[in-house]
Nucleic acid binder design. Sequence first.
DNA 1: TTAAAAAGTTAGACTATTCTAACAAATTAA
DNA 2: TTAATTTGTTAGAATAGTCTAACTTTTTAA
Lengths: 216, 216
Amino acid sequence: MDSLTEENYIKSIYALSLATGEVFVSELAKKLNIKQPSVNSMMKRLATKKVVAYAPYKGIRLTEKGKKEALSIIRRHRLAELFLVKVMELGWEEVHDIAEQLEHVDSKRFYSRMDEMLNFPKFDPHGEPIPDSNGKIYTQKRTALSDLVEGLTATIAAVGEDEKSFLDHLNAKGLQIGDTVTLKKRELFDGSVTLQHKSKKEILLTHQVAERIWVE
Amino acid sequence: MDSLTEENYIKSIYALSLATGEVFVSELAKKLNIKQPSVNSMMKRLATKKVVAYAPYKGIRLTEKGKKEALSIIRRHRLAELFLVKVMELGWEEVHDIAEQLEHVDSKRFYSRMDEMLNFPKFDPHGEPIPDSNGKIYTQKRTALSDLVEGLTATIAAVGEDEKSFLDHLNAKGLQIGDTVTLKKRELFDGSVTLQHKSKKEILLTHQVAERIWVE
DNA sequence: TTAAAAAGTTAGACTATTCTAACAAATTAA
DNA sequence: TTAATTTGTTAGAATAGTCTAACTTTTTAA
Ligand SMILES: [Mn+2]
Ligand SMILES: [Mn+2]
Ligand SMILES: [Mn+2]
Ligand SMILES: [Mn+2]
């Protein structure tokens, strides 16, 4: 079994390698807020455990075993987040930090009961897909709200971040998963967008925020 | 803040010192399944943190601060166990191991929501009192089923152990918290007892089992 | 194609936990 | 009240994680 620390490394490697399949020591170090030499020695350890493929000066990539483990951790994290929102009625902005801890709980029963109580859900409270128990995960290219064509209407499907500060911001703007928005105007100068919201209100979002909202 | 390891020491010290107020290095070592020198060095550390009062060759005792921390951990453990049984519908025999992990989750919200959902419960699934958020805990002398006078009828209030193997045994015997039993006969030879159960069945328990069941 | 700059490694050190071996104090038994 | 036996402590070592300092390789820019 992996330690909590190892699980966190694996999860981060998975997230960072989604785009290109590989990650660099420097990226991992920044993401985990630790120094490069620490990452370097952990990679040697994970390589010994056959979780990553790693050769000096080359990028890091998860092995099939490593991917399986990553998806299992992500499954637990997202299932926990949804449970906290649906069953325990916490806000979508306060569940990530708790799920960071619950994802390391070692108990098949705990998670299978969550899964049952939530009726085998497919998405977490932030719209992210929940891998199934075999590690299969729903994926499809998504459109960022910042790239939506002017004049078009779309539905908010997911948010690309679940940090409290970002979600507090969306709460303040009155935006939620499932909301329908129409892109009224995109400023050429700074990429900020003005939305027409179902609430009839016009909402202004900076590019930084709009690019973290996925629509379909 | 205390580490998970420190929390486990504190909880064990509390449990072992209930009777006399103090614990010995050897007892703690046995309970935690670690060697005496490890306990010794941890006691030095906890003494520095003012969690225990400790002098070489003298017993260990929790300070007021240590007791508060112990009760807070026990509260989280028991709240979690009850939540797992009442909300997640797990069996009383399978919740202890999960609660051992959940008790270390650092989140006021998580526990206050459990408390609310359970309507501020006073007892856990094993009949043990749940300390309130100020650390107050209900206590009263209890009678062991093994000490019940022959012929008397009583109600099972709690079980003194929540290990799966013990609870599986009670499940097999058909005994639960709240059940009314009459002590039909106590064998002088081995202290085993025969009960008349509400289910009309007669149940035979060894002394070892009967002394771990509290009645009132 | 050199010279910076960036990225990655090694070496050595430190904290948290725990262990074994060896020694000391306290308790128990003869 | 000696001699065992039990309990507790010290010393020294090991593993998991991390860090800083000092290189080494790669990459980027000039
Ligand atoms: Mn999350
Ligand atoms: Mn999420
Ligand atoms: Mn328990
Ligand atoms: Mn219990």
